[in-house]
Design a protein around this nucleic acid. Structure first.
Length: 384
RNA sequence: GUGCGAUUAGUUCAGUUGGUAGAGCACCAGAUUGUGGUUCUGGUUGUCGUGGGUUCGAGCCCCACAUCGCACC
């Protein structure tokens, strides 16, 4: 293949807030533009659990969703994904997709992993079979999956790691990033649209390591850059401090993705510190288990006190489920173990998250984000 | 009708040689942050079928009754 792809994918800053580091931007991909700040629903194995694409598109307004390399590699496997023509076509999703490399799974499945300089060997959680991820084959794998944005293979350091371990871990992540980047630039996308990759800033909770990691990652960042290894056990305040350490060093024209975060309050606090992109399993996983986030606060739908509350799920909710189903009905569905319960809660929560970042964007554009955030945070943290 | 077995938490069941009771599930709460449709952490709940007897002491031993199940007439 002689030709190089013309690089069209880019991030453009459109607004900055006066009272905080919040910003608005547009991330352009071949599958469409993404308005930032944005929340990206997680669809690990090619499905945002319990939610129809129709609802993701029209009701929730998802602009981009996630897939996971580790999980997709194991099931359905690369043969099927390649034959399908990539993940977009396989799951019939017309908008952008971002895939995580599986680095986090290396960390979270630690009892059965083995890290070496070359890569990471692990056993499948499905059938125990042995596999190896290297920076090189991870690029190849993510080329086959075909997400618009792919993530570098890293080691996600535990939040309570000591500095010696964090140092060692970061050094490995840096060497892996060099190799990942080299492989990425010597290969082409397979399906006729552009891919970009985001390097990941590690460094645990040590400001010095974080700064060093940022400088190093920036050398490999074209469109965006990610902050990883946060919300993995460290106090929330420490996470915010790390964002304050890292964000000022990143040029304004780079999209900043905070991986795996978080609660609605986390989103607003991170946006205030300059983050543009988020993903988190919380709205869907916690939703399936009875937690819903509303404009009035957090609700555990399983609690007996909702048995006869016939009011709407969220009086200010934007999803059709908010005005269609009552808290009493959803409570009943959870108690009865109906799968419909998880579907309704997931749809509501995702719509809530997408509406939250939509509101954030409009307040940043209006220039009153900081004040709006303060009063919003108080409400979002209350438990009903 | 006769024989055997059963009866303990909302439920299914444990319960040592007699020393005033436990578990799973359910229920009630809490946790959950780059997803294994979860997982984890706490908590509440008992006239031990009824009535008598033996004993310092009975869920346990004895008697009667009630209810349920099984087998046989």
């Amino acid at each position: 293949m002689g030709f190089r792809y013309l690089r069209m994918m880019n991030f453009k800053l459109t607004h900055t807030d006066s009272g905080s580091s919040a910003r608005c931007g547009i991330l352009s991909t071949d599958h469409g533009d993404i308005m930032t700040p944005i929340f990206m629903p997680v669809g690990t194995v090619g499905s945002v659990k319990g939610v129809y694409h129709r609802d993701l598109l029209d009701d929730i307004g998802a602009e981009i969703i996630l897939g996971n390399t580790y999980h997709l590699y194991l099931r359905p496997g690369l043969e099927t994904l390649k034959a399908a023509g990539g993940l977009h076509r396989f799951e019939s999703w017309p908008r952008p997709i971002l895939t995580d490399s599986g680095g986090f799974q290396i960390f979270s499945l630690s009892p059965i992993r083995k890290l070496t300089e070359e890569g990471c060997t692990f056993q499948s959680h499905i059938d125990g079979s042995r596999h190896k991820f290297t920076p090189e084959n991870n690029v190849d794998t993510q080329r086959i999956i075909g997400a618009d944005i792919i993530m570098a293979l890293d080691e996600c350091c535990p939040g309570d790691a000591d500095e010696a371990y964090a140092r060692k871990s970061l050094d490995l992540t840096k060497r892996w990033l060099e190799r990942f980047s080299a492989r990425f630039h010597e290969t082409e996308p397979l399906y006729g649209y552009e891919q970009t990759f985001f390097p990941i800033i590690q460094g645990c909770t040590y400001p010095g390591l974080r700064r060093e990691a940022t400088e190093h990652a920036l050398a490999h960042s074209e469109v965006g850059i990610a902050v990883g290894g946060l919300a993995v056990g460290e106090p929330t305040e420490v996470m915010y401090e790390m964002l304050e350490t890292v964000c000022p060093i990143i040029p304004q024209d780079r999209a900043r993705y905070l991986m795996g975060v978080g609660t609605p309050v986390n989103l607003l606090e991170a946006i205030a510190r300059g983050i543009d992109m988020f993903d988190c399993v919380m709205p869907t996983r916690n939703g399936r288990n009875g937690m819903i986030f509303t404009s009035e606060g957090i609700i555990n739908m399983r609690n007996a006190k909702w048995t006869q509350d016939f009011g709407p799920l969220d009086p200010d909710g934007t999803s059709w489920v908010d005005s269609t189903y009552s808290r009493a009905y959803l409570h009943h569905l959870f108690v009865a173990g109906e799968m419909f319960a998880g579907m309704i809660a997931s749809e509501h929560n995702l719509a809530f998250y997408l509406d939250l970042v939509r509101q954030a964007r409009s307040h940043i554009a209006a220039g009153d984000f900081a004040a709006w955030k303060e009063q919003k945070v108080r409400k979002l943290a209350t438990r009903l």
